[in-house]
Simulated assay, not measured.
Amino acid sequence: MEKKRVLFFIYQMGGGGAARTLLNILNNIDRSKFMPLLVTLDYDGSYEKYLDQDVKFIKLKTKRLRSAIFPLAKVIREEKADIVFSTIPNYNTIAILGNLLSFTGAKNIVREAAFLGGSPAADFKLRLYGLLYKFSSRVIALSNGVKENIVKRYKVKREKVNVIYNPVDIERIRTNVEEGILPQEHKTIFAGSEKVIITAGRLVQDKDQQTLIKAFADVSHRLDVRLVILGEGELEDELKHLAERMNVADKVFFLGFQQNPYVYFAHADVFVLASKREGFGHVLSEALATEIPVVSTKAYPGAGEVLNDGEYGLMCEVGNAEQLAEKIYETLTWTEDRREQVIQKGLERVNTFHAQTIVKQYEDVFMKTLNKTY
């Protein structure tokens, strides 16, 4: 069978969740059926070095997204792509326009990972995306909640949307845990008798580290604890000032973006996600893979789907610092037997998101789209 050429388009292979998802698909897609090609703008991304060597990688000679349409169209045409796959609305727009202007028979498949909209202006913008998505063959939603949002706010027909969860590269995570070494200056944070709470994510409003710091302050009155925050963002100074006001600044450690966050997870006692909303909550599944208990807010719609509404990790209401503190305290005071039981159950859950399993679902969508069996 002739291999189908799948062109993956993204702004850059940076440190975000979208790039990580593409990396997992690119590296795990069946090479006997598909020939993957990656196209980005002219940026260097931190995930590039993890790409398998056989993935053809083209950087367009532009750093402006709107200037990528015609160069992308040229690549689609020259590479004889069968499918053009993209993720995130702005990039999907460019991918669809580029494909239309390539004047080829390539099929567009777009992926939506976030639960967007809510305000009249935002909903109107999503309607415009939805009009453009009519030129795509399929829409991939990251979760059932994201699918419902696409149907409701983008006005995309329900039967055109497939739900595929994020792939988790369990083997790579385990290798990073086993071979990873904490920097010398960070080892002391985990070396004491204190319990360590850890979180990871951009320091932005949606991730709501403010509620986590307040909950941590509550827990610190009852247990000897430390809080490690991985990530960068515009709210770093504000969060540090909050920790000072809560009198826990000496127990909260802002360690920035880490290339290997998994070794940090494995050294901690509980992973906590305090987000207001999550399309999926990929970091929750990754934390489960590092064999650490997790606590999360009911960040709609994804967190509940990852943890099956609390079956695989304790959950609380969004923005409720008191509830979050109770769930963290409960987790940190489990017996060893209870803790191990929860960890094993979490490993069973994360196996359902195994990269190879999830990528096969993408392959199925690709083939059905090309064979027009939808």
Score class of each variant (00 low, 15 high):
residue 1 M to L: 13
residue 1 M to C: 08
residue 2 E to I: 13
residue 6 V to G: 07
residue 8 F to A: 03
residue 9 F to A: 04
residue 10 I to P: 03
residue 11 Y to K: 13
residue 17 G to R: 10
residue 18 A to N: 04
residue 18 A to D: 05
residue 24 N to S: 14
residue 27 N to R: 06
residue 29 I to Y: 00
residue 29 I to K: 05
residue 29 I to A: 04
residue 30 D to R: 10
residue 30 D to T: 06
residue 36 P to T: 06
residue 40 T to Y: 04
residue 41 L to G: 03
residue 42 D to F: 07
residue 49 K to S: 15
residue 55 V to Y: 03
residue 55 V to F: 06
residue 65 L to Q: 09
residue 68 A to S: 15
residue 69 I to V: 15
residue 70 F to T: 12
residue 70 F to A: 12
residue 75 V to F: 06
residue 77 R to M: 10
residue 77 R to P: 09
residue 91 Y to A: 02
residue 96 I to M: 12
residue 98 G to A: 01
residue 107 K to A: 11
residue 110 V to P: 05
residue 115 F to L: 13
residue 121 A to H: 01
residue 133 Y to S: 07
residue 133 Y to V: 06
residue 133 Y to D: 03
residue 134 K to Q: 15
residue 136 S to Y: 02
residue 139 V to P: 11
residue 145 G to N: 09
residue 146 V to L: 10
residue 149 N to S: 14
residue 151 V to P: 01
residue 152 K to I: 00
residue 154 Y to D: 01
residue 155 K to G: 00
residue 155 K to E: 10
residue 160 K to G: 01
residue 163 V to D: 12
residue 165 Y to D: 13
residue 167 P to W: 03
residue 167 P to D: 10
residue 173 I to L: 12
residue 176 N to A: 09
residue 182 L to W: 00
residue 186 H to V: 00
residue 187 K to V: 12
residue 187 K to D: 07
residue 188 T to L: 12
residue 191 A to E: 15
residue 192 G to V: 06
residue 194 E to R: 12
residue 198 I to K: 05
residue 200 A to I: 02
residue 202 R to G: 03
residue 203 L to F: 02
residue 204 V to G: 02
residue 205 Q to G: 00
residue 209 Q to C: 08
residue 210 Q to W: 08
residue 211 T to E: 12
residue 215 A to K: 05
residue 216 F to I: 09
residue 218 D to Y: 04
residue 219 V to E: 06
residue 221 H to L: 14
residue 222 R to W: 00
residue 222 R to Q: 12
residue 223 L to V: 08
residue 228 V to W: 05
residue 228 V to M: 11
residue 229 I to P: 09
residue 229 I to C: 08
residue 230 L to M: 14
residue 233 G to S: 02
residue 238 E to F: 06
residue 239 L to I: 05
residue 251 K to Y: 00
residue 252 V to N: 07
residue 252 V to I: 13
residue 257 F to T: 05
residue 258 Q to Y: 00
residue 258 Q to A: 04
residue 258 Q to F: 00
residue 260 N to I: 08
residue 260 N to K: 06
residue 265 F to E: 12
residue 266 A to S: 15
residue 268 A to P: 09
residue 270 V to C: 08
residue 271 F to D: 12
residue 273 L to Q: 03
residue 277 R to W: 14
residue 282 H to M: 14
residue 283 V to H: 05
residue 286 E to P: 13
residue 287 A to I: 08
residue 294 V to R: 07
residue 297 T to R: 06
residue 297 T to L: 11
residue 299 A to V: 08
residue 303 A to N: 11
residue 305 E to L: 10
residue 306 V to T: 11
residue 306 V to Q: 10
residue 307 L to N: 04
residue 307 L to R: 03
residue 308 N to Y: 03
residue 308 N to M: 14
residue 310 G to C: 13
residue 310 G to D: 09
residue 311 E to H: 05
residue 313 G to Q: 08
residue 315 M to N: 00
residue 316 C to I: 07
residue 317 E to L: 07
residue 320 N to V: 08
residue 329 Y to Q: 11
residue 330 E to V: 03
residue 330 E to Y: 09
residue 333 T to V: 14
residue 338 R to Y: 02
residue 338 R to H: 06
residue 339 R to W: 02
residue 340 E to W: 03
residue 343 I to H: 05
residue 349 R to K: 14
residue 354 H to G: 05
residue 356 Q to Y: 01
residue 360 K to A: 13
residue 366 F to S: 02
residue 367 M to G: 00
residue 373 T to F: 01
